[in-house]
Structure formats: C-alpha cells, structure tokens
Design a binder for these strands. Structure first.
Lengths: 341, 341
DNA sequence: CTGTTAGCGCATTCAC
DNA sequence: GTGAATGCGCTAACAG
C-alpha cells in the first residue's frame, strides 16, 4: 500500500514537504489548493513529496490562519445510554456531516454543574456552535448573546429565560391524545407514572394527561398519580402501589419509557388486564402481547432538525447570526396501538 | 448575570484584553495561568477586563503554540443507532473525560469508504488518537505505523493485517457456551441465524456454535443455518423458513440481537415451544415470557477498555508510543437464562 | 514583576 | 509561475 514512508514521529509540516521537493512552502500550499498557477513539474514533485512524507495538512493551523472556526459543533446530552439520545445524536451527526461539520460529544449524566463545565470547555475549543439537551433549569450559561457568542440550539427541553433556538417533541399533545384514547376505551380510573415535575418534558406530559381527563369530564385523582420514578425498578414499585389500592386504576399512563417498562412488569404479575399507555415507543412493544398504546416520535428527526437550525445560524452572515429570530420547532407525535387486535 | 458585556461579534483575543487592561498580552497570559509573578493590581485589572469582554482563551491557538495536539480523540462507529455502539461510545466518553480528552464522533453506517474518508479528516484535524469499529476488512488505512502516525484502537472487531490494539468480546466463547446450554437441555436440532460471514463477530459466533455442536457429537445440518439477515424483518423471515421445514429445529441460536428479535416474532406465531438463545442481552428479555438464553456482556466496559488502551499509548513517551507491544483485550461474556423458571 | 522577541503551521497579500 | 514577507492567537525564553 503506502510504500513504507519513514513513519515520521512528528507529523510532517508543509515546510518539510517543501524542502523535500526543493520548492517553497508557498508552492506546496498552492498545489494543495489546486491552484492552477503551478508548473506541472513542480506539482508532480510536490505530490511525490507529500506521498513520501505522508504529509497531511494541519487543519487546526489552517483554520487559525483563515480566521475560520473549528468546523466542530458540540453536542451535549444528558445520557447517551438512553436510546432516545443516541438516536438524537445520530440525527445530529448526519446533518453535521452533510455540512462538513464534525461533532464533539459530551455526556452530562444529568449533572447541571458538569454541563456548565463542558460548555465552557467547548467554547474554549472554539466550536462553531452547540446543541445541548440541558440538564438543569438555569440556562444563562447557554445564552448565545452572553460572553462566548456561540450559537446554541436546545434539544428536547425549551429554554428557561434566554432566547435560544430549540427543537421539542409535542409532549403535551402526545400525552393528551394517548390519555384521551384510554378514556375513549372506557377507562374512568387512569393512573399516572412519571418523572419528577422538575423535568420539563414530564411536566408537559402530565399537563397533557390532566387536560385530557378534564376534557372527558373526569376528575384527577391524586392517589393515582406517582411522579418520582427515575428508574425501571422504582417505576415497577410505584405501579404496584397503584394496583394494590382498594379501587385500583384500570389503566395507566406512563410518561416515559422507563416508567412504561416498570409498569409492564408490575401489571403482568398483579393485574394483567390493566391497559397501558406510555410516552416513547420501544422495540418489542408489539411482541409483548400486552394491550399497549404508545406515543411515538422520531428522535433522529429531532436531532436532524436541531442540527438544521444550527447550520442555518452558522451560515448566516457572521455579524447577524445572533440577531435572527429565535425559533422553536415542535416535532409531532403519533399514537400507536399494539396488541389490541 | 453577566452584566451585559458588549456581546463581541468576533470573540475577544488576548490582545483585546491586554489593551482594555492597559497591560501587555504576556501579563494576561500569566494571569490566565495563575502565574504568581503578577502584581495583585494587574491581576485584578486583567480579570476585570476578561469579564467585561467575555474573553475565553482560544485553546486551538494555544495548542498550536504549545506543539501539543488537539486533546481530541476520534471515535468512529458503524451504527450509533445500535444500543451496543451507543453504550460503547458512552464508555469511551467517560474515560476520555477523566483524562481531559474530548471525543469527536463519527458514524460510518457500515460504509468502508466513508470510514476511510472520516479517518483521513480526523487525522487532518490532528486528533491525538482514534478508536474505530472498522466497517471493512481492509485496515491498512488504520495502521498507526503508516503515514499519519496516530495511535488507533479497534473496538469489537480485530485488526486484519496491521498490528493494532484491539478490545474484543469473547464472541467465540459466548456462542459456544450458549449453544452448549441448548444441547444440554436436550436439543439435537439447533438452527443458526446470523449476519453474513464477512462480519467478523458473527463468523466467530458461528464458529463457537459449530464447536459446541461438535463437542456434543451432533452433526452440523446446513439446512438449519441462515447467515444473511441484517434486519429484524429479514431475520423473522429466515426463522420462519427454518420453522416450516418438515423436521424443524427445536432450538435456535441467534448470533445478534436483530436476529434474536426476528426469531422471537417468528416462533411466537409458528412454534412457541421453540427454545431460543441469542448473542446480546436486551431490555425486556425477562418480560417476554419466552424461554430465552442470552449471551450478555457490558458494551460500556468495552468502550472503557478501548479508551484505556488509547490513553496508555498517548501517555507513553511520544517517540516510543508506537513501539509498545500490540495488545488485545477480550471482554468476557456471561450466559443468562430468562423465563425458564 | 513586566514587556519584547520569536515562532507553532498555514495562507493571504504583494512583489519578482 | 514563484517566493518573501506578514500575521492568525497564543506562549516559552529571554531580557529589563
């Protein structure tokens, strides 16, 4: 293959190539730019030197000289282990790639302080922009207008305070529609399992749940509401609690997939006839053999849209990029029914 | 918060800060380094200027000057939508973070040509090292000894040719053990569903499958072998084929999760009494109510180990880093039984 | 304690 | 066609 270049310990520079080819660095630079004003002879020599030395242009230095930024965008997510975020990341990466941008990945583990730190580092590295799924509720450090001036797009959760572009799921609408489907099926005692109210998405879904009940003229029974489960075991336990009530709910709405999975485990044992509805679709939902209503959406599309917004801002005239109107895109949801043949 | 700095359109430079504070750039640099040899007065002035201008040190220029590399490592995976790779990425990210490295993410979509392109770009960006899940079988472009000289660690698939560090799963052992469990349960007609033989992991798993049969004195019936399914529907179709044979297999070994999921769908309809075993654990395996043997392992640990190897090489003396012995780490697997109470 | 000089690798002037 | 000079933003190594 490569005919055994001297395996340079310190990557070859343009000067190295120039010396090897007995030309000036400038000529090398021109060849690398396909500048036509280079004699064929020299072009050949340079190309040969490049190959011999295994030279690769240093994009970092190049960008510094050009005053361009890094060609990098930061992607800060809360939990890459969650399929939602990995699909989201995939969407971001694909659109970024199409626009000749690379993605620097960072995981906050839902730690707001870590997020601040990571954002600072990314800015110092001169990322051209950032896509952030914010962990906390204070978004001041994400304000593009503040010091740093880096375009930011928020994913899945809306900005609190500063005007920042965002791409959201129709949490409210999806929850409302799924709950309405439960009610339409005749259920009057519907339980709710969700994350703590401090998590915006879950709060919105709870709001959708409440509105759907209200629209059906059903009361909201707080004994049927559990909003503290962050893990599958916790969700299972909470679901058990509800099912053990003297008048248990006949249906459960679960505000995220972890709660849905916990509820599935609980109902399977305690009350298999309970109808389940949940936010987030998941693999195997159709095979479970349990009647299940699911609020589905495309997390990858969410990522694509977020990257799209960012790219738009990046391609705006540099001095006006931050003056564009703040935009908010809401990705639709779709209610899917499984196992109710 | 930030008291309305002038929102600089072009990020402030050290010189801007120096002028604002009426000192030399050098003094600014020192303050930013916590160099004690700066008068408290000047330190205050600089700090004030930094805040007023929203200055952030340009790490790119800094690294260029220091001759350091980027502090970035490249992570090239084949399919981030696959939970395996997202967990893998998470493991890489966590260890990288602990070592003050950031991760540049790239997805090849199993396209070897795209991989070559991405690897080139990453090298041009002067990543300090790369972790790659190779898509093709030609790994010449990944050889650290070739031009480029960037340390590389391969994940999940071993190097073909060049000597490259790698972190692998015990594909052979896991498949052999799971198959043996099937045989021990009395099955004599065991089918195999897998990816094409060109995929190394799947080939290894097939090898484990074959050896287990051989060790049990069972013949390998090629009519029970299907090795072309890359998607869940294709796997389901292949499983149906096997189950429709006049003497169908009584158990199936599935070489990856997509084949397992397809097989579950097929058996559920056609032959619920079929015993299933599969490589890769997955969520809800316990809830399916189907007897299931699973080969489990920790993809996050795989990522951690890969990053660990890379970090080791990066911290070796620069001129000797490439001379270390090539290492290969094999992460163990564990056979788990579900629904066979 | 502080400033000046020089240069990391590259590319845009502007000369020849 | 080609090359020399200059500077991107930053910081070691020297002066002062």
């Amino acid at each position: 293959m490569d005919e055994g270049g001297p395996a340079p310990r310190r990557p070859a520079t343009m000067r190295d190539v120039a010396e090897y080819a007995s030309v000036s660095p400038m000529t090398v630079s021109r060849v690398l730019h396909d500048d036509p004003r280079v004699s064929p002879v020299n072009r050949e020599r340079v190309l040969a030197a490049v190959k011999a030395l295994g030279y690769r242009r240093n994009e970092v230095a190049r960008n510094l000289r050009l005053g361009r930024t890094s060609g990098l965008i930061g992607l800060v997510v809360t939990n890459l282990a969650n399929p939602f975020y990995s699909q989201f990341a995939l969407g971001v990466e694909s659109v970024a790639g199409e626009n000749d941008l690379k993605v620097v990945l960072a995981n906050t583990d839902e730690d707001a302080e870590r997020e601040r730190q990571l954002v600072k580092e990314l800015i110092a590295r001169r990322v051209d922009g950032m896509i952030v799924v914010p962990a906390g509720s204070d978004h001041a450090h994400l304000d593009p207008k503040a010091a740093g001036s880096v375009p930011v797009v928020l994913g899945a959760r809306p900005p609190a305070g500063p005007e920042i572009d965002s791409v959201l799921v129709d949490d409210f609408g999806g929850a409302r529609e799924a709950t309405a489907a439960l009610v339409a099926a005749g259920h009057t005692r519907v339980g709710f399992l969700g994350l703590p109210p401090s998590v915006w998405t879950s709060a919105e879904r709870f709001r959708g749940f409440c509105v759907a009940l209200e629209e059906a003229g059903l009361p909201l029974d707080e004994r049927y509401v559990r909003r503290q489960q962050r893990t599958i075991p916790a969700a299972e336990e909470a679901a058990r609690d509800l099912l053990r009530l003297r008048r248990p709910p006949t249906a459960l709405f679960c505000a995220n997939s972890r709660n849905t999975l916990g509820a599935i485990r609980a109902t399977r044992q305690l009350a298999p006839e309970t109808t389940l509805a949940g936010f987030d679709d998941f693999e195997l939902a159709d095979v479970l053999g349990v009647p299940l209503i699911v609020v589905a959406y495309d997390p990858r599309e969410l990522g694509r849209q977020a990257a799209g917004l960012l790219v738009q801002r990046l391609s705006a005239p540099a001095d006006r990029a931050l003056d564009l109107l703040t935009r908010r895109i809401v990705v639709p949801t779709k209610v899917v029914r499984y196992g109710m043949s």
